[in-house]
Simulated scan of single mutants.
Amino acid sequence: MSLDTVVEDIRDEARARAEEIRETGETRADEIVSEARREADDIRSEADREVERTIEQEREQKLSSAKLEAKQARLEARREVLEEVRNDVEAQIAEIDGEERESLTRSLLDAASEEFDAGSVRVRGSEADAELLASIVGEYDGFEVGEPIDCLGGVVVEADGSRVRVNNTFDSVLEDVWEENLRDISARLFEE
């Protein structure tokens, strides 16, 4: 065998080995690229799912926030309507006059007078009712008209010698009736 043949055999073997290494390298490179693509697809899919979850959470939060704002706006509107109704009722009560006002004032004073024994008792009411109170209070022994107070009508009765004070103003009666019936009033106004 000649040296040229040996050299040529070594070259052929080296070329074959180089081709085998290149093919193995290409196969391994293809596997690495495929694995990298799968991982990239997995990462992209997970990122897409995470984005969808984030979007859904934000949508839910915004929806909840919008519902809460709407509920607050509805409650505020109801509160305003109830306040208007209450103001209308107060205005109608303030306009009560004549025999009806006298009868109501007399009834409130009768109810309050039951809490007091003989002695000096002061009856206070609206400045507009000064004459009415003077005419009614004269019928009660030991009762006198005191300084006017800011109210829609009715009476506040106080005894000098005790801590007893009875508030039978139209305002206090309205407050009691309003609180007792607020749920029914609301239900009727807003058809609940």
Rank of each mutant, 00 (worst) to 15 (best):
M1V: 11
M1R: 07
S2M: 04
L3A: 02
L3E: 00
L3M: 03
V7I: 14
E8V: 14
E8I: 15
I10W: 02
R11A: 12
D12E: 14
A16N: 10
R17V: 06
A18K: 11
E19S: 14
E19F: 12
E19V: 13
E20W: 02
R22D: 09
R22M: 11
T24S: 11
G25Q: 05
T27N: 12
E35I: 10
E35V: 12
A36M: 12
R38Y: 01
E39M: 14
D41V: 10
I43K: 09
E46G: 04
E46R: 12
D48E: 14
R49C: 03
E50Y: 08
E52N: 10
R53Q: 11
R53V: 11
T54M: 15
E56C: 04
E56Y: 07
Q57E: 14
E60G: 13
E60M: 11
E60C: 04
Q61V: 10
L63S: 11
L63D: 13
S64P: 03
S65N: 08
A66F: 08
L68D: 04
E69G: 04
A70I: 08
K71Y: 11
Q72M: 14
L75F: 06
E76A: 15
E76V: 10
A77I: 05
E80T: 07
E83L: 10
E84I: 11
E84L: 12
R86T: 05
V89D: 00
V89W: 00
E90M: 09
A91Q: 04
A91P: 00
A91I: 01
A94V: 06
E95M: 08
E99D: 15
E100H: 02
L104Q: 06
T105V: 07
T105K: 03
S107V: 03
L108W: 01
D110L: 07
D110A: 08
D117R: 12
A118S: 11
A118Q: 09
A118N: 09
S120L: 10
R122C: 06
R124A: 07
R124E: 07
G125T: 04
S126M: 06
E127T: 10
A128P: 02
A128S: 15
A130P: 00
E131Q: 13
E131N: 10
A134S: 14
S135Y: 00
S135N: 09
V137G: 04
V137E: 01
V137Y: 02
Y140D: 00
G142D: 08
F143R: 02
E144F: 11
E144K: 04
E144C: 07
E147S: 13
D150N: 13
L152I: 09
G153P: 05
G154M: 03
V156L: 05
G161K: 07
S162Q: 05
S162F: 05
R163C: 04
N167V: 15
F170R: 04
S172V: 11
V173C: 03
E175T: 12
W178P: 02
L182G: 02
D184W: 00
D184G: 13
D184I: 08
I185V: 15
I185P: 01
F190A: 07
E191Y: 04
E191T: 10
